[in-house]
Design a protein around this nucleic acid. Structure first.
Lengths: 297, 297
DNA sequence: GCATAGTGATGCAAAAAATGCAGCGCTTTG
DNA sequence: CAAAGCGCTGCATTTTTTGCATCACTATGC
C-alpha cells in the first residue's frame, strides 16, 4: 500500500536504528528517507525519534505511534482477509505463539486438518514461553497464543481454557510404569528430568515440592520438552509433561501416568488473543477448530 | 495527515455518492479524484465501489474498508491525545451519545467539573435514543454512550451500570405530592404525560401496565423529557422520569416520588463504549469521573 | 590528541507523480 | 430526443519526491 509506505519507513528506521541503514532496506536514499521522516513528524505534530550521535531511537510518542502502526497494519490485513472471504476464496495467514508442548502432536494435527479444508491458508508457529507469548500478541507478532499457565494475562483475552493435570513420563520398562496414578513423593526416588524454570509445569512442580519441604534436584534440566521425553524414555528417570503434549499410541515404549491431584492440582492451557483485537477470518476459524479439538481431547 | 488523504476521499465519495460531487468537497478535480480511487482499488486488490449510472456506492468490500478507515482514524486520534498527554498538555475531545435524561443536570455538571481541571478538553454531546446510541459507537460518531436500558448491547462494552427506579413527577401542589412511594395504579387516576415509545422508561411503564391488564392512555405523549417535566409541573398530570434526570433542589415547585418496586422494578443506566476499542485518554478519564459520580449519586 | 568513520541535515537539479483541462461514451430523465 | 449527469482518459502542466554532493557534529581507535 503506497500510502502507508511512511509507516514501513518508520519501522525500518526503528529496526535498524539509523536512517542510513534503513535507507538500504527501503530502497531509497538516506536523504529522501530523512526528509520523509521529518515531514511526517512535522505533520504529526511532534518528533517521534530521538536524534542520538549514533543514530535514531523512538521516543515515547514514537512508541505509541509504532503500536498504532502495527494495529493499523494488522487490521488492514484482517479487512483483506475478510474481503477475500467475500469472494469465496479462503485465503489468509495465521500466526500462532505456543508452548513447546503443542508442537509434537496437537498443532501439526490441527493445522493439517484445517489446511485440508482451506489449502490457501498458511501458518506460522512461534515457540514462546508463557511470558514471551503475551508480548508476541502485543506486537502483533502472533494472532493467537496457546500457552500453559500464562504469566500476566493483562493483554490476554481468553477464548478457551482446558484443564491439564501434570503427567509423569517414563519408559514402559520402568518399575512404576503400570501404576494408574502416582504420588509426587514416589517420583522423587528416581532421577528427575525437569523443564527449565520459565515453564509452567516446572513452576507447578516446584510449588508442590515446596509444600512438603522438599526442593527438586533434577538430574537433567532442559528447555527442550523433546529432551525430557527422550531422556525419560531411554534412562530410568522420570520426566513431567502435560497431556496435550503426549500421545499413547505414538509411543508404546513409554508410559504416561497422572500425578495425584492432591499433590499437584494441574493447570490450565489457554487459547487466547490480544485483548480488544478483531481477529482475521482465518485466525478466528482456526481458533474455533482448536477450541472444539481441546474440548474433546 | 497527507498520507491518509485517500481515506478522506473515499469517505467523501461515499458520503456524496458521486465522484464529481466529492471532488468539490475535496478541493480537487473529478478526474484526479477518479484516478486516485482507481489507483487505490488497484493496490487494494479489489473494487470498493459499485459504479452505478447515477454514481458510486460502496460494495461489501468497501463497507469493510470504511469501518477500518474509521477505526484507524479514531485510533490515530487516540495516539495524538496520548502524545499530548505525554508533554503534560491535557488536550482532547470527548464525544458522548446520551439519553435525554442526562441533559438537564447530570452531564452539564460533570462536563463543567472535568473542564475545570482540564480546560483544553472539548466535548460534543449527541442526544440519542437507546438504539441510535449503539449505532453511534459503531460508526465512531461517539466515544462514550450513556443510556438507559439499551436495546442490543451487541457492540456495547459496559464500563458501569447503575440502577434507576422509575419516578413519578408532579407539581408540589398535587394531591399525591407528599407520599413517600406510589403504586402505579394510583397514578393512572390522573392525566398521564409519557415519553414516546422508543424510550426505556416508557417501555417499562407499558410492560408494568400490561401486567395488570391495563393499557396506558397518556394525555400527552412527547419525545421531549423537558416537556414531560413542564407539563407535569404546571398541570395536574403525572409524568415519569429516572432519578438521574431530576434534581430536588433545582425544582422546589415539583415533587418526585418513586413507583413501588413491586410495580416497576426499574432499569439500568449504562455507561459504555464500543467493544474492543481503546479509548482516547480524555474519554477514558472522563468515563472514570462519570463512574464515580454515578456511584455516589 | 588527532584522524576516521559514523551519524543526521540541507541546497540544488533531475526525475517522478499528481493534477487540471477538455472531451468521450454512457444512462437516466423530462 | 435533447439535456443533464455520471465515470473515464489523453495530454500538457504543475507539484512533489528523489538523488547527489556536501556540511556539521560526535564518538571511537590508534
Amino acid at each position: 500500500m503506497r500510502h502507508l509506505l511512511i509507516y514501513d519507513m518508520i519501522e525500518a528506521v526503528h529496526r535498524s536504528g539509523s536512517i542510513r541503514k534503513a535507507a538500504e532496506d527501503t530502497n531509497i536514499t538516506a536523504s529522501a528517507l530523512n526528509r520523509r521522516i521529518q515531514a511526517f513528524e512535522e505533520e504529526f505534530g511532534s518528533e517521534i525519534f530521538e536524534r542520538l550521535p549514533r543514530g535514531m531511537r523512538l521516543n515515547p510518542a514514537g512508541e505509541l505511534l509504532l503500536h498504532h502502526i502495527r494495529l493499523q497494519r494488522q487490521d488492514l490485513l484482517r479487512v483483506h482477509s475478510q474481503v477475500a472471504d467475500l469472494s469465496g476464496v479462503r485465503r489468509g495467514h495465521v500466526k500462532i505463539a505456543c508452548s513447546q508442548a503443542l508442537l509434537p502432536y496437537f498443532l501439526p494435527r490441527e493445522i493439517s486438518k484445517y489446511r485440508a479444508e482451506f489449502p490457501d491458508v498458511t501458518f506460522s508457529v512461534n515457540v514462546r514461553d508463557r511470558i514471551q507469548a503475551e508480548q508476541d500478541l502485543v506486537t502483533f507478532e502472533s494472532d493467537l497464543a496457546l500457552v500453559f499457565e500464562p504469566a500476566h494475562m493483562v493483554n490476554f483475552e481468553v477464548l478457551h481454557a482446558v484443564h491439564q493435570p501434570v503427567m509423569a513420563v517414563m519408559s514402559a520398562a520402568h518399575l512404576l510404569a503400570d501404576r494408574k496414578s502416582l504420588r509426587l513423593r514416589e517420583c522423587l526416588e528416581y532421577d528427575l528430568v525437569l523443564p527449565a524454570r520459565q515453564f509452567g509445569v516446572r513452576v507447578l512442580l516446584d510449588q508442590a515440592a515446596a509444600r512438603f519441604g522438599r526442593k527438586l534436584e533434577p538430574a537433567l534440566e532442559t528447555d527442550s520438552f523433546d529432551m525430557v521425553r527422550h531422556f525419560a524414555a531411554y534412562g530410568h528417570g522420570i520426566g513431567f509433561q502435560i497431556p496435550v503434549g503426549l500421545n499413547d499410541l505414538a509411543r508404546p515404549d513409554m508410559s504416561f501416568i497422572p500425578i495425584a491431584a492432591r499433590d499437584i492440582a494441574g493447570g490450565e492451557l489457554y487459547l487466547g488473543h490480544l485483548k480488544g483485537r478483531t481477529l482475521p477470518v482465518a485466525a478466528l476459524k482456526f481458533a474455533n477448530q482448536v477450541m472444539t479439538a481441546l474440548s474433546y481431547a
